[in-house]
Simulated assay, not measured.
Amino acid sequence: MSYFIGLMSGTSMDGIDAALVDFSQPSQPVMRDFLCVPYSDTLKRTLLALNFPMNNEVHEMATASREVALAFADAANQLIQRHPDYQIHAIGSHGQTIRHAPSGPLGYSLQLGDANTLAVTTGINVVSDFRNKDIALGGQGAPLVPAFHASVFARSGKRRGILNIGGIANITLLTDQDTLGFDTGPGNTLMDQWIALHLGHAYDKNGEWAASGRVIPALLNALLQHPFLQECAPKSTGIDHFSLHWLQQHLGKSDEYAAADVQATLLHFTARSIADACQSLALDDLFVCGGGAYNTHLINTLRELMPAVHIDSTDVLNIPANAVEACAFAWLAYAFVNQIPGNLPAVTGASRPAILGTLTYAH
């Protein structure tokens, strides 16, 4: 058997997704187990703060990296303890992104989650730091999951899209000829931040609060002018570009808009930015994963905006929507070990395919 663990925490920062995946048949990997472990409230606040400049930043970043690694190790160890007979070959750890600034001659992407701490605490070799070699080759370092999507979800004769809606949303186009992919803009990030500010909830369950409000056309049109949405792929972004501070610039200092109406507008902003990005892709099917796949109002809004496209969850493709990205980082560890390129230059803009990741031994 060829078992790998994938660990992922996305830009929503709602917790650590951990998947145990069997790659005995690489084109048909089987997820043997999955769990999600939430961050503590204190660690989540620290990580959110580190997306922006702050005092004593280097110390806060270094200690948070150890904390993230210990939280990741706890998730991995739970899987290991549930399957004591499985020989885990390696852990693929995405870590927690706090800054993503890939453009320019000194571009970078920064993920926390010290690989040495993770390897020592689990006793298993760790493959991590998947993004920066792609950036060194002139790429965006993102999105990285399209290579995994192509490996397991592509079907002959279909123009198939795989849409991940995390904090940021990204789309993969799978065709007989090629694979394309890019970030489309905000996923859950603005909706999550807005409901946390006004109701104290981590997210808007089923989009119910957004559904209770009315879209504000002038605000929606203003948000749709964000420069990132006008850029051509390859492109990637982060939650620092779609923040409450940015939103407040469009709201002004008045209480002109009801909070529920702003939430309704933010949901439509996410849906419109996704639908606009998909417009030129001529999709037959779109399969959704990530936390946004469970936002019923968001998915129904996408269906209204894209009536010609069949939209469903990746659950029907045998990988649960909340587990796809964790499985992808298990695959990236598998790819590293087997010397398979983990990036797609047509997606990231890198100058060539490359083996992605850095290996940290447990012993």
Rank of each mutant, 00 (worst) to 15 (best):
G6E: 01
G6A: 03
S12H: 02
D14Y: 10
I16L: 11
D17F: 03
D17P: 01
V30F: 13
M31R: 10
P38M: 15
P38R: 11
T42M: 09
L43G: 06
K44L: 06
E57C: 09
E57F: 15
E60G: 08
M61D: 06
M61G: 09
A62Q: 09
R66C: 14
R66D: 08
A69Q: 12
A76S: 03
N77Y: 15
L79M: 10
R82Q: 11
D85I: 14
G95P: 04
I98S: 00
Q111L: 07
D114S: 10
L118I: 09
T121S: 09
T122D: 04
V126T: 04
S128V: 08
D129I: 09
D129P: 07
D134Q: 13
D134F: 02
G141Q: 10
G141S: 13
F148A: 05
A154H: 11
R159S: 09
G161N: 00
G166C: 02
I168E: 02
T172Y: 06
T172I: 05
Q177K: 07
T179M: 03
F182C: 15
N188R: 10
L190R: 05
D192L: 12
L199Y: 09
G200A: 14
H201E: 15
H201Y: 10
A202W: 07
Y203A: 10
Y203L: 08
D204S: 06
A210I: 03
A211R: 15
G213Y: 04
G213K: 04
L219F: 02
A222P: 08
Q225D: 10
E231H: 07
T237Y: 08
H245E: 12
L247G: 06
D255T: 05
Y257W: 13
V262K: 02
A264N: 03
H268A: 15
F269C: 13
I274Y: 12
Q279M: 07
F287Q: 03
T296D: 15
L305W: 11
A308K: 09
D312W: 15
D315E: 05
N318L: 04
A323S: 15
A330W: 03
Y334M: 02
A335L: 06
I340H: 00
G342D: 00
N343F: 01
A346E: 13
T348S: 07
A350C: 14
S351A: 11
I355E: 06
L356D: 00
A362T: 07
